[in-house]
Write a protein that binds this DNA or RNA. Structure first.
Lengths: 142, 142
DNA sequence: TTACTTTAGTTGGTGCACTAACTAATTTGA
DNA sequence: TCAAATTAGTTAGTGCACCAACTAAAGTAA
């Protein structure tokens, strides 16, 4: 190979963007007025009791400024609220509003079907390989 | 599996970002004052005679507004120039300036070593699987 | 030629990613 | 106990990604 492993980062990047784009299209079609990242924040807030922004950032593999801004948007939309932690006044505990909870609940089934589309024609072994290789690359660069 | 293929988009996304991040760190360390995307524009401009922005966008799998803006930045930096195509006055033909050409040439070897880092402990078969699976996912969503 | 459509590229607006610098609260350790 | 270090979160600035709307040039067909 003259240029070994050439282009792999481009392939990674374009695939990641395509996956996000496809989910966003589906959101749009189902009249779901929010971004994929905003939805993920809501889902994780729903699933994790007394979640702080730092913990949320870790779950999403995003940095704190990014999380701050997504949460800001969701607060403005009235879907999420910040509450002060009783144990540590630096910490914001995230909670869904009633409206936020309803939105997440009503979307779960549809979101699952979005996920499956990407894996058509691929099997469980492929999924394992995918996980192994991507995790290995990640570790190599950490 | 209760949530099949859950999290795969997160894994894709975080790995793609890590790869870009690592390259950017290396650029910084070698005193290379530009982003990875800017470098890619310069590399492709160097390798392709009389490249238009549309062709460049296709090579990078990016959309045209994104390309316009990256090229804008490189023009401002004096590394790239737009020339009018003699055949079609809508088309901008991209060319590296002398300084741009020197920057690309001097960086090629170092960039190759950046690429290899991600694949430590992985073999050629892994690389093929990686390509096959990511391309399949991409096709599934197109 | 004249009107219709397509194509290359730009511009504006919004959202996410990353760095750096900052505030305020908490923890640590001499 | 109190100064230094750490931690949670925010703000500012820059760059990329995507959509939509736009300009101007080409191509097409009557």
């Amino acid at each position: 190979m003259k240029e070994p492993y050439n282009q792999y980062s481009l392939l990674l990047d374009r695939t990641a963007r395509k996956v996000k784009w496809y989910a966003q299209q589906q959101f749009k079609e189902m009249g779901f007025d929010m971004t994929v990242d905003q939805w993920l924040v809501m889902k994780l807030t729903d699933e994790n009791e007394a979640l702080s922004q730092r913990e949320l950032a870790a779950l999403m593999y995003k940095d704190m400024p990014t999380v701050t801004r997504i949460v800001d948007i969701l607060c403005t939309k009235g879907l999420v609220e910040r509450a002060e932690s009783p144990a540590d006044r630096r910490v914001s505990i995230l909670k869904l509003t009633q409206e936020g909870r309803e939105k997440v609940t009503s979307s779960r089934k549809q979101v699952r079907s979005i996920r499956l589309k990407a894996w058509e024609g691929l099997n469980e072994k492929d999924f394992d390989e995918f996980n192994r290789i991507l995790n290995k690359i990640y570790e190599n660069l950490t």
